[in-house]
Design a binder for these strands. Structure first.
Lengths: 192, 192
DNA sequence: GTCTATACCTCGATAGAC
DNA sequence: GTCTATCGAGGTATAGAC
């Protein structure tokens, strides 16, 4: 919001980095403003200067991921062939999930995050999650297509973040999630 | 804990009913002991007489559902044919999800509930969720089977509780969830 | 513009009177 | 079995130092 070319590089950026780390470690609810302030070496009030509320911090932390997802949906929607749409969306989504599994777990399992996501979307009527599901489900989807897309979308996200599978190698999990998604949408199995 | 034959029928039972309602409405975090006390017409301290901590209330609220799931897994494990195991488990689980969609949403999206579930299981090493997944994934499962089961299990639970689909009729959603699960595990489609 | 000091209210939780 | 009183910590908020 400022005019400076690199104006937002200092405390605000540090704060978001610290908050992201603490959120993934303790959850949003489990992270107090005091913990953030201590990790930064400042007081609660200093934190409060940069963000008017804790929800604002949560929103700022998750915003980059949401923007990437949004861009992915836009790119996929622009493709002509439905198979290509699904391929791109599935691959991009799985990549996002894998890239930060802990963060995705946070997304999927914290009511504060759900609230922040809800607050966030400025444009679409029902959230761009609908747009993403719309691409997966296809044009004029019936109930089956819609439910299938929803199960797949939420299942992949949850599975990516599950502590049970934390030991699984990133590459292995990426391949498996992609595979399960492709099977579900009738896409041919890919070669190694 | 008391000696009376129907000793735990009064305030404690009312309290759990009220807590369940408030939890599904506002989430666990969003429900304060004050709200519960007010809804009961007593003070916070009175609530504390019945439960030593808020987590104890959470555990007591979710215990019946967990016990049902556990019983379902036990029954399914006892079957000989693997196809029958999957059929029973899938149907039972979808039934549970449908019977209280709001509660399932709570299960899947509240860290307090996750903590309570963790606290709960007294026997199994890694929670009976592992046992449930084990039945779905089969004996000596490879990574693919395990990931598939996990995506299905979490996806069905999340989808059942999603506000997006709240308008969908129970019977319709039950049939769709069952169908998506059966497809994923290679079970033949069922007739109406 | 950035931060500290300080205070307010609610929360979960405890102690002790009735 | 329920109440009053109180505690420390949490999120929020303002006044003012630099």
């Amino acid at each position: 919001m400022t005019a400076g070319p690199a104006g937002d590089t200092d405390t605000r950026t540090r704060l978001l980095r610290v908050a992201l780390r603490l959120f993934t470690e303790h959850g949003v609810e489990g992270t107090s403003l005091q913990m953030i302030a201590d990790a930064l070496g400042v007081t609660k009030a200093a934190v409060y200067y940069h963000f008017k509320t804790k929800d604002e911090i949560t929103e700022a932390v998750i915003a980059p991921g949401l923007r990437e997802l949004e861009a992915l949906v836009t790119r996929a929607s622009a493709l002509k062939r439905r198979g290509a749409q699904i391929d791109l969306l599935l691959e991009g989504f799985v990549d996002l999930v894998i890239r930060d599994r802990a963060l995705v777990a946070l997304f999927a399992s914290d009511p504060s995050v759900a609230r922040a996501v809800w607050q966030w979307n400025p444009a679409a009527t029902d959230g761009f999650g609908q747009a993403l599901l719309g691409v997966l489900a296809g044009p004029e989807p019936d109930t089956t297509a819609w439910v299938t897309a929803t199960v797949m979308f939420t299942g992949i996200a949850m599975t990516g973040g599950l502590p049970n599978l934390a030991a699984l190698d990133d590459e292995v999990l990426r391949a498996e999630l992609l595979d399960v998604g492709r099977r579900m949408f009738g896409r041919p199995r890919r070669r190694d």
